[in-house]
Amino acid sequence: MRVLGIESSCDETGIALYDTEKGLLAHALFSQIEMHAEYGGVVPELASRDHIQKTLPLMQQVLDEAGLQRKDIDAVAYTAGPGLVGALLVGAAIGRSLAWALNIPALPINHMEGHLLSPLLEANPPAFPFVSLLISGGHTLLVDVKGVGEYELMGESIDDAVGEAFDKTAKMLGLGYPGGPALAALAEKGQEGAHIFPRPMTNRPGLDFSFSGLKTFALNTWHNSDQSEQAKADIALAFQTAAVETLVIKCRRALKQSGHKRLVVAGGVSANKSLRTALDALPKVQVYYPQLQFCSDNGAMIAFAGAMRHQAMIAETEATFNVRSRWPLDELTPPASA
């Protein structure tokens, strides 16, 4: 079965073709970072218009690379949420229209489920069950994953997600957009131990996250510093160290609570080298990540998630299409057998 995946939830247009027998056949991605950098963040209207311009050409590029035609597609999977509504509507309208024209299934996919399942694209994928740390955009989630569509939320961010905190702290330090990777790069020049930042919500039980206060602590430290380039690097390192250790502490708790020995980490922040190093050091735990190219938003994860849901015989939605700016994982339809 060949599934075409369309990702258009925010500022990246991703298209991919996944074959359930041969694996990923082809994929393409266009990032809008350069366009949005001028404004210091994503402009929703510009994002939507760019998706309109890029989706069909990228789709043709992927088909050409795979040596296939549209009639060879067996199903279309598209991101239906969460995300920017205008951007989501572009992918949904194109995906549904193509499915209608070809008389094939259309599969609305939860963006976060796409990230959650993306490490299963690897040659040695994790087996179910496992704990998943999802750290993408405005989301920081810990999920007990029993199978495709079977998710139990264990913890989540109650204010800023870790990715948002990285970006906002980077902006405070004048690092531009996108801020997360820039802050991580600057942290490599920081002096270890120059500052000790708090590890939020680790001195109490539970698996929820809060990174807003850590961002404010970084801002106050910056205002009280000499605001030199070295001070900037020291703050970047202290912030990253505190954020990473907080994530590790919560992951350790989630693994103990669930009894699982496998941890899957996915989403844009999963590309952070310091985080990977710290999680890989967890004793008696197998840690899995997507390839770096699949950490950010991409069509491959949507095509794969669509194929997995179709194989699990999870019911599709009605023939009309809807998108959701917010769509919690635990509201997803489980397999018919569950």
Results as ranks from 00 to 15, higher is better:
1 M>P: 01
3 V>Q: 01
8 S>V: 00
8 S>T: 08
17 L>V: 07
18 Y>S: 00
27 H>M: 09
28 A>S: 13
28 A>T: 03
29 L>W: 04
31 S>E: 05
31 S>Q: 05
32 Q>R: 01
32 Q>W: 05
36 H>S: 06
41 G>N: 07
46 L>M: 15
46 L>S: 02
46 L>P: 00
47 A>N: 07
47 A>R: 03
48 S>C: 07
55 T>V: 14
56 L>G: 15
58 L>A: 05
59 M>T: 14
63 L>D: 13
65 E>F: 13
65 E>K: 14
69 Q>C: 01
73 I>C: 09
75 A>G: 11
76 V>S: 11
81 G>W: 11
83 G>A: 05
88 L>K: 14
98 L>E: 11
98 L>Y: 03
99 A>Y: 02
111 H>A: 14
114 G>W: 02
126 P>C: 13
130 F>R: 15
133 L>D: 05
137 G>T: 14
140 T>W: 11
140 T>E: 12
140 T>H: 04
141 L>Q: 14
146 K>W: 07
147 G>K: 04
150 E>H: 04
152 E>C: 06
158 I>E: 01
159 D>S: 00
161 A>Q: 06
162 V>K: 13
164 E>C: 04
164 E>Y: 02
167 D>K: 00
171 K>V: 13
172 M>N: 10
175 L>Q: 05
176 G>L: 04
177 Y>T: 08
179 G>N: 09
184 A>H: 03
186 L>W: 09
187 A>P: 06
196 I>E: 07
200 P>E: 10
204 R>C: 07
204 R>Q: 13
204 R>W: 00
212 S>V: 00
213 G>M: 11
218 A>C: 05
221 T>L: 10
235 I>D: 09
242 A>I: 07
242 A>C: 04
251 C>H: 00
252 R>D: 13
254 A>N: 01
259 G>E: 01
261 K>I: 11
263 L>Q: 09
273 K>R: 10
277 T>G: 10
277 T>R: 06
279 L>K: 10
280 D>S: 11
281 A>F: 14
281 A>Y: 09
281 A>H: 08
284 K>S: 10
289 Y>N: 12
289 Y>C: 03
291 Q>G: 07
297 D>W: 04
303 A>W: 06
307 A>I: 04
308 M>Q: 14
309 R>T: 14
311 Q>T: 08
313 M>W: 06
316 E>H: 04
317 T>S: 09
321 F>E: 01
322 N>P: 02
330 D>V: 04
331 E>L: 14
331 E>H: 02
